[in-house]
Design a binder for these strands. Structure first.
Length: 517
DNA sequence: GTTAGGG
DNA sequence: CCCTAAC
């Protein structure tokens, strides 16, 4: 099939920096298509410092063709990788020094059952609406079921998005843009503390979630009643990174780094677990809790969790809507995605549609910087009970992140980053408009940008507006990446045609009115 | 939720 | 890109 992209997941069991990465090849044509198949592609542990982890996640998905080397390279130049952060949390396993020898495999039992449940995509306009009209919408809501078949050539069956969105909404997964709003109390002190104690990146490789303890050590000292901990490694919450195969290892590293930084940058709090049990009372002393030198056999764990409304009195008030559920998700409870919920979309797209599809794919794949999630993980998540811990974040977010509340007005909304349309996108837009006209932006979106999460139909409408304008002005006055004249010509032609069509329509509807005029 | 337009 | 009236 069409394009192929690589996804690298630094999953729950991945260690920072040397986290286990999952790289898989997407062979589906439509990213949004839930029927897409994914296949793991082993990149090797050396190539990018990533090792593989058991694909526990993709249960139900038959390992599809692995790296399809013949896959087409993305058409569009916009290859910015996509990074999203599915909500999840993980532990930092701290083991008493005496346990060093057998420090492997002492995570919480449930951890082994973990499967990758990428957080659902979020960022729907609904959220915006739900929260406040000023918040960003990441993607327009798409109607479920079939695509408007106005042009009969789209045969792909879109899955029920409503249910999808419903599910994600309930999971409280917020895009980073909004996320920062509940970042009020800034990075948890815990976080800093831990960091200051040094987080060692452990190169140990995990073969499965079960061995998630590998590389984690703690030192307990009985001297002067002090409990000393040494967190040798700290695992970050599940990250989801996606970038084109053409991306360099360097960029991969960068993405991972950004992802990690973003996560640590805020919105997280640390949970303490002792023997797999959550220690909720923050006022208890270590001794009372059982964390002491007398307790060296116990496994102390830390988990990264999203801040919750339960969290200590917010230093700032009024961030309610963004608070995650107080019933802090237990990192342990994760369920494998229901297998077989796949809808195989038939993608016998007509040539004409190829472009759009291609763009769709590409867009979604690379350009998703601001896209908090990815379709490819939708399926695995929608029916998931995955505990949402870390709000979805994106690279884009990094640019706006750490800003903590600026004023009482916690409603300061971050403007979306500017993302100029690439020629390929313009091409796709023009093609779609030629076919659908200028009054059906939603359809245009669905047709040519369904996977470009950051392009809303309003964006497309706006872009068309500017394209028309651009086409009318002299080349000297144009700015930005030059759009081929050929395209601009098509813009004018299409615009003229559809404008005329609309006029005719109106005339039909209100002839008398027109006559009067 | 979409469109259409002004900002 | 954002905001919003209007539908």
């Amino acid at each position: 099939m069409g394009t192929l992209a690589s996804k690298v997941e630094v999953g729950p069991s991945g260690y920072m920096g040397y986290g286990n990465c999952k790289v898989e090849a997407e062979t589906n044509k439509f990213m949004k298509d839930e029927s897409h198949k994914t296949a793991k592609v082993q990149l090797g542990t050396r190539a990018d410092g990533c090792s593989f982890e058991d694909p526990l996640v993709w249960d139900g998905k038959p390992p599809a063709v692995s790296s399809d080397s013949s896959a087409k390279a993305p058409l569009c130049g916009d290859h910015s990788p996509h990074i999203s952060f599915p909500a999840s949390q993980d532990y930092v396993n701290v083991v008493s020094r005496d346990d060093d020898e057998n420090s492997s495999g002492c995570t919480h039992p449930n951890t082994t059952k973990r499967s990758f449940r990428p957080a659902p995509r979020i960022g729907d306009r609904r959220i915006r609406k739900i929260l406040a009209s000023k918040y960003w919408k990441v993607a327009p809501k798409l109607k479920d079921a079939t695509l408007s078949n106005t042009d009969g050539d789209l045969k792909t069956v879109y899955h029920n998005r409503n249910s999808y969105y419903r599910s994600i909404r309930s999971e409280r997964n917020y895009p980073i843009k909004k996320r920062r709003l509940f970042n009020c109390s800034s990075v948890p002190n815990y976080d800093r503390k831990i960091r200051s104690e040094g987080i060692c990146v452990s190169p140990e490789r995990l073969t499965g979630a079960s061995s998630s303890v590998a590389g984690s050590h703690t030192s307990f000292q009985s001297r002067d009643s002090h409990v000393k901990l040494r967190i040798k490694s700290f695992r970050v919450p599940e990250l989801f990174i996606e970038l084109p195969e053409t991306a360099t290892v360097g960029s991969l590293k960068r993405r991972v780094m950004e992802a990690v930084n973003a996560i640590l940058g805020g919105g997280l709090r640390v949970g303490v677990l002792l023997q797999g049990k959550k220690v909720k009372d923050d006022n208890k002393t270590l001794l009372q809790t059982g964390i002491s030198h007398d307790n060296q056999k116990d496994v102390l764990g830390f988990s990264l969790e999203p801040k919750t409304s339960q969290t200590p009195p917010p230093l700032c008030s009024g961030d309610s809507p963004f608070m995650l559920p107080s019933n802090a998700p237990q990192p342990l409870a994760r369920y494998p995605p229901a297998p077989g919920v796949v809808h195989q979309g038939t993608c016998d797209a007509v040539p004409e549609l190829q472009m759009a599809n291609a763009v769709n794919f590409i867009e979604s794949d690379h350009d998703s910087a601001p896209s908090p999630t990815d379709m490819s993980i939708d399926k695995s998540t929608k029916d998931s009970k995955a505990l949402v811990t870390v709000p979805a974040m994106s690279v884009e977010a990094l640019a706006v992140v750490p800003v903590h509340r600026k004023s009482k007005r916690s409603e300061i909304v971050q403007r979306r980053i500017r993302r100029p349309f690439s020629v390929a996108e313009v091409e796709a837009l023009v093609q779609a408009v030629e076919k659908l006209g200028t009054g059906r932006w939603r359809d245009v979106k669905l047709r040519a940008f369904d996977n470009a999460k950051h392009r809303t139909y309003v964006d497309l409408k706006d872009k068309w507006k500017t394209l028309v304008h651009t086409a009318r002005i002299s080349p000297q006055q144009r700015r930005g990446e030059p759009v081929p004249q050929e395209l601009l010509d098509r813009v004018l032609t299409a615009h003229a045609y559809w404008t005329q069509q609309q006029a005719k329509q109106q005339f039909k509807q209100q002839p008398e009115t027109c006559l009067l005029l």
